[in-house]
Design a protein around this nucleic acid. Sequence first.
RNA 1: GCCGCGUUCGUCUAGGGGUCCAGGACGCCGCCCUUUCACGGCGGUAGCACGGGUUCAAAUCCCGUACGCGGUACCA
Length: 493
Amino acid sequence: MSVRVRFAPSPTGFLHIGGLRTALYNYLFARHHGGTFVLRIEDTDQNRYVEGAEHDIITSLEWAGMTIDEGPHKPGDVGPYRQSERKEMYHKYAKQLVDDGHAYYAFDTTEEIDEMRERLKKSGNPSPSYDSITRQSMKNSLTLPQDEVEKRLAAGDEYVIRLKVPRRETVKFEDLVRGIVSFETAGLDDQVLMKSDGMPTYHLANVVDDHTMGITHVIRGEEWLSSAPKHMLLYKAFGWEPPTMAHLPLIMSPSGGKLSKRKAESEGIPINTKDYIIGNYEPNALINFLAYLGWSPGDDSEIHSMEELCKLFTLDRVSKGGAVFNHKKLMWYNEHYIRESSVEELLVRVKILMQDAGFEVVDDNYLKTVIELLHDRVSKVDEFVSMGAFFYQAPEEYDPNALKKWKDDSAGFVKAYQAKIEEFSEEDFVAANLKSALEETVSENEVGFGKVMMPVRIATTGQGFGPDLFASLELLGKQETLNRIDKALEKLN
RNA sequence: GCCGCGUUCGUCUAGGGGUCCAGGACGCCGCCCUUUCACGGCGGUAGCACGGGUUCAAAUCCCGUACGCGGUACCA
């Protein structure tokens, strides 16, 4: 049987970075086995529905380099791919469960349930729930006379359908990352399957869908592990073969705990995939990083393309413990992939960023040289803009930090250097000559190299660091260089 | 509270009883390269949560404890 996996997010906001990793593991598993990667939108909670979320999910996955084989925008044979559009199906199956005695109608109001909880809590039960004991004293089709149940249903009374969890049973199943896990049904409550608004809960929908969509492996976050036994009970009640389970370790925040929006942001970690897109991160870097957050191929390798990851990925090599998100390591990957990119590839992207920043890019070759000069020093592509701005604009301000190196004698050295390079013809205005001119200035004044070089750098670039100064000046050209020096001399004295 | 899952350098991880006084990567520190800042190269720092077993031998197996995380909804 060929592998079919699904990524099943709920459209309650932007695609979370943890969700992206879950999607990635599903994707890698599918590709590794030549299987199918399905996107299913779990929009059964109408209150939390966010407009545009589905679009964000799809574009985020595509940006990251995952191709969705089937989804709401790309229907296959087992659609629809939005749970809200499969409503009828859930009704049918829930009804079947009731008829077979595995589920029942419950008419209790929220208030009545709250009362029950209060009452039980007072009498010493620390965690009261609607279960095999308490259901006997509640209003449901198990306690009410048959004709009243029918009357209520006919009258359109609000009701939910609950799973009739067996009283004492052990639910055991094999999880591909954790091994055998087992739960006692005594600790489970009679989970609501159909809500009073006519929508199914996640639990019902997920089981019905995974079965009817032919899903062979359920790969999802560990937060689902606790409800997995309920799902197993459902498969059993339906008489269906459950898919193979694999619960992934959670991504943790550096300060501990599940990486939540609030935590992540206070720790400088972008939380939504969208933030990485607009933050100009390299998608292959993010993917490489995420793949290794909770998984490793078992050798000493660190760098792999999506294609290689597909070949290497197996679920038995997923680790069990939560993994802390390490932003610095992500940046290391990001730098690596930028360095791997050719200047031509970079040119296309940097040009757009430059233009967005308001710089006019008239000469591609000029930009190309800028990129070459900066290639090894940027961490993200947008730094080509921030670090390379001086190639497009004379400094208005001088970095106060760099200015610490502008001493009383600096202006004199800069003037001396200026005098030398002024003599160069346009053709001679090249890095090698510019460097020797500086060396001459240095020896004539009997000072250290830095005493002259730094002031020249500050005057021409406004910064105390940057790419090779002489190559930079060559690119800037004679006139521009001289102008900048004039201006600096004027401003800094 | 109850249920479940987990625990190897600061972080991600390798390790499935002897070859492990535990390997790699990020970070950090140092040196080299560079008469800037980076890149790069080389080196260093640092860890098997604890306690009991089992065994000739345990990071590896078993049992406890501690700690962490998740779940405990008509949310997913």
